[in-house]
Amino acid sequence: MAAAVACALVAVFTVLLPLSHTASGDGSTGLGSGGVADGVQARADDCSPDEKGHEPERSLDPKGDQNGEAVKAIKARGYLSVGVDQNSYRWGYRDPNKGLGKTGSQDAKTSELEGFDIDLAHEIAGEILGDPGAIRFRAIPTNQRIPAIKSGQVDMVVRTMTISCDRLADVAFSTAYFQTGQQVLAPRASDITGYDKSLAGKRICTAKGSTAETALGDGRDKNEIPRSADITTTVPNQLDCLVRLQLGEVDAVVTDGALAASQAAQDPTVQLKGEPFTTEYYGVAMKKGADDLVRRVNQVLEDYRRGGKGSGWQKSYDKWLEADLGPSSGPPAPKYK
């Protein structure tokens, strides 16, 4: 029964229209004029996860210019365009119960996007434009996050997006706002015990373009998991992996532990197996060269982190994530270049 309910929720979340907004406008998105020069923030060749001072989560210090071309374009337009997920429970999703009218039918106007990432997006819009509601959301599949930024479809992506050296070749990132790690999700009765030899011969699902996909490929090449593990199943959105698991088409899912926990909350017939086998950080992704916007977002994150109990980052964590992830030790400290 729980699996059926989860499948139904997935279906509801997936078929909804990808746009939700509370600001007026002509429907255009992006950073406006395209003459943004490449900045120094996103130099992937200087990036090394294991070398102090060169970690990918280092970003531009907010003390610099925060009102350049990118920020001015957003202010002139009057709203912030943000790429988000609408399928990740507790992070970016729609609660169909909140959209039910008196007749019991769905009302998209009251079924708003909500979750931890959505709270942060509203915070950024409020700081830049003075109105947390001056925002347009675009639901973007995992493998379309970077193309949406590079093409100017969105100003930024706030979508459980891991900061990595590879991605810094294409986009710029804020400082980290959440720490997580890759983890295995499988049925409770499965003999899978985690990221180990128990994955031999198992079919594993990941989201296309995700760090999970990369980590699995690297792990198999390094013999961290058996070479017989089948890692060929990839899907546009990580939640699609949960559906494949429920249908018996795969044996396990690998995704960020924070997302895996939210999937387990949706479907109690599955559970996290073993410990996280990587350490990763989520960041807000933006267009390369939009240094003023990166600095502005980093300033927002400074204020958001220090909000304290009952406000800011901690308040959002307590509301959306504590039930599934347990008490938090707080957000990761910012690292600047």
Rank of each mutant, 00 (worst) to 15 (best):
V154T: 05
A290Q: 04
S24Y: 09
T214K: 04
P132F: 01
V254C: 13
P187N: 05
D85K: 09
G35E: 14
M161G: 00
G274P: 15
L168M: 14
A73Q: 09
I149R: 00
K197I: 05
S174T: 00
V300A: 15
R159A: 01
T142S: 07
G130K: 02
R145I: 03
K52M: 13
A42P: 10
Q314W: 00
T206Q: 06
C205W: 05
A42G: 13
Y195R: 03
R306G: 06
E55C: 03
F173N: 00
L247Y: 12
S151V: 03
G27P: 07
K208T: 11
P132R: 12
C205E: 05
H21S: 10
S28Y: 02
C165N: 01
R295Y: 15
R188V: 10
A23L: 01
T162A: 00
R138L: 06
D26C: 08
T206H: 01
V284R: 04
Y79S: 08
S105F: 14
A215R: 09
E69A: 09
A125I: 08
D256Y: 04
Y336M: 01
A200N: 09
L321V: 06
A8K: 09
I204P: 08
S228A: 05
L60N: 12
G130R: 04
Q41P: 09
W320D: 04
Q66G: 08
Q153R: 04
D170C: 05
N143L: 08
R203A: 06
A323V: 13
H21E: 11
R167K: 10
I192D: 07
N223M: 04
Q153H: 11
Y282L: 00
D38G: 13
T278S: 09
I146P: 00
Y281S: 02
Y195K: 01
D303E: 15
H122S: 09
P141Y: 01
A148Y: 03
K319C: 07
A261W: 15
P141E: 08
D218K: 06
P187I: 03
G308W: 07
E249R: 14
S20H: 03
G217I: 01
A215T: 07
G330Q: 06
I192S: 06
D221Q: 13
D291K: 15
W320V: 01
E51I: 15
L19H: 07
N298G: 10
E322K: 13
Y304E: 11
A125T: 08
D221V: 05
R188C: 03
S81Q: 05
A333M: 02
A70L: 12
K63F: 12
A323P: 02
P334K: 11
K102P: 11
A134I: 05
G83R: 09
S329A: 14
D218T: 15
C205D: 04
E112Q: 13
L168Q: 05
K335L: 08
V235P: 11
D166G: 00
C47A: 13
A229F: 01
P332S: 02
P132D: 02
A121D: 02
A176W: 00
G115N: 04
V243H: 13
E57H: 14
W313K: 10
W313P: 12
T175Y: 06
P18V: 03
F116C: 02
I146M: 07
D191R: 06
T214Y: 06
A207W: 12
G32T: 07
K208A: 07
I192F: 03
G64H: 12
P236S: 11
D26Q: 15
A134V: 03
G326I: 02
R295F: 15
N237Y: 14
L325T: 02
L301I: 14
V235S: 05
D50P: 00
L199V: 06
D119T: 12
